[in-house]
C-alpha cells in the first residue's frame, strides 16, 4: 500500500510568553511558514501580548535570573546572582539583539510587518487583553483582530493544519 503524504498547509501558532526567546521562536516559525507559502495564523495571549503591544514590543527581554542556559561572552557560565544586578537583563538582551542583527534577524515590529506582508495573520487573545486592560488601539497595526479561544479554534480546521504552542 502506498503511504499517503499530507503536506503542511496551515499553521496556527500560539505565543503565551513574553521573553525574547519565546517571542522569537514564534516569529521565526510564523515567518518561516509564510515564506514557504503555508497559511499562517499567530495568536498572542497572556505575556505574549507584549510582543504586539506598541509600548512594550521594543523592550522584550530575555531572563537572566533562573535561566540555566544563559552564558557570558566566551561561553562562560552566567551566575544567577549576577542577573539580579540592575540593568543586567537589559544589557544581556541588547547584546543578544546585536548578535541577531548581524544575522539579519528582523526586530519584532519588522517581523510583524514581514509576516503580514506575506499574507500571515496576527491575532490577540480577548481574555488576556481584558486582564491586562489593553485595547485594540494599544496593539500594533498588524494585529488583525481580537479573538476568543473559540474564534481561534474555528480558524484552525482543515487537513494539513497544525497548532503549535511555543
Amino acid at each position: 500500500m502506498q503511504k499517503e503524504e499530507y503536506p503542511l498547509k496551515k499553521v496556527c501558532i500560539i505565543c503565551a510568553k513574553g521573553t525574547l526567546e519565546d517571542v522569537y521562536a514564534t516569529l521565526v516559525l510564523a515567518n518561516g511558514a509564510v515564506m514557504e507559502g503555508i497559511e499562517t495564523k499567530v495568536f498572542f495571549t497572556f505575556f505574549g501580548l507584549d510582543a504586539i503591544t506598541k509600548k512594550r514590543m521594543n523592550s522584550i527581554h530575555t531572563a537572566v535570573v533562573g535561566n540555566p542556559a544563559m552564558r557570558l561572552p566566551g561561553n562562560l557560565p552566567f551566575p544567577t546572582l549576577l542577573g539580579i544586578l540592575p540593568g543586567m537583563e537589559a544589557l544581556a538582551s541588547s547584546m543578544m539583539k546585536k548578535e541577531m542583527e548581524k544575522l539579519d534577524i528582523p526586530t519584532i515590529p519588522e517581523f510583524l510587518e514581514m509576516i503580514t506582508a506575506g499574507g500571515g495573520e496576527i491575532y490577540a487573545c480577548k481574555l488576556a487583553m481584558d486582564m491586562f486592560k489593553l485595547k485594540k488601539e494599544d496593539l500594533a497595526d498588524e494585529v488583525k483582530d481580537v479573538l476568543t479561544v473559540g474564534d481561534f479554534y474555528a480558524m484552525c480546521g482543515g487537513q494539513g493544519t497544525q497548532i503549535i504552542f511555543t
Partner: peptide, 8 residues
C-alpha cells in the same frame, strides 16, 4: 546569505 529582509 539571501533573506527576505535583504530584498526589502
Amino acid at each position: 546569505t539571501l533573506t527576505i529582509r535583504a530584498i526589502s
